[in-house]
């Protein structure tokens, strides 16, 4: 398990063009990023493409990472998520063999050890926990699946406008809760 401090070192080295550090960074973080991307795209081929672009972007813009501003892994995840969501919004091509790749159910689900519940995460979960249950679900579904409002509305069977308004209200409340 690579600690955030180590990832910060690696990112700093990568910012100076250290290819060895980049390889180590990839080894330390690729599984996490792939997990995030795969959840959004739900296809290995698309996820791999996004991973490729995400890591190239990290390789080139590691200097933009500011340790004072965010956790290193969260920054990398944000880069990958942006690309993944952009890809998810395009009409996706069928997989090469004409059949979407199967995502294995049993890819070794591991528990999130409790020591990984960082203070920041606990604060965030506490704030999300203050929302009404249906709005919690909405927010989490939106984050993990990165569904558009339309997809989400269809999924939750509610009007798009109402969903968007509710989502924004939730975000506002979470923001305020985190601020206090």
């Amino acid at each position: 398990m690579t600690t955030p401090v180590e990832i910060t070192w690696l990112l700093a080295a990568v910012a100076k063009g250290d290819a060895l550090a980049f390889e180590r960074l990839y080894g330390a973080t690729s599984a996490k990023l792939y997990g995030v991307v795969l959840r959004i795209l739900r296809r290995h081929d698309l996820a791999a493409d996004v991973m490729e672009h995400a890591y190239l972007q990290i390789w080139r813009s590691a200097g933009e990472f500011d340790p004072a501003n965010s956790a290193p892994l969260a920054w990398m995840v944000a880069v990958a998520r942006r690309l993944a969501i952009d890809t998810a919004r395009r009409p996706s091509p069928p997989a090469a063999d004409g059949e979407p790749e199967v995502i294995d159910d049993n890819e070794g689900p591991g528990a999130v050890p409790r020591h990984q519940l960082t203070d920041d995460l606990k604060r965030l979960l506490t704030c999300i926990g203050r929302l009404a249950p249906d709005r919690q679900r909405m927010l989490l579904l939106a984050y993990y699946g990165a569904f558009s409002c339309e997809q989400l509305a269809a999924k939750l069977d509610m009007p798009v406008d109402a969903l968007r308004a509710s989502l924004r209200r939730s975000l506002g409340e979470v923001a305020q809760c985190l601020k206090s």
Binding site: S30, A48, A71, A78, Y144
Partner: peptide
């Protein structure tokens, strides 16, 4: 917002990508 919501990724379980991916990136 990326900082605020970023911590949620902790709940996502890691999935190893295919080994060839690194070579493509490299």
């Amino acid at each position: 917002w990326e900082r605020r919501l970023g911590e949620l990724h902790t709940m996502v379980e890691p999935v190893e990508p295919e080994p060839g991916l690194w070579l493509r990136i490299k």
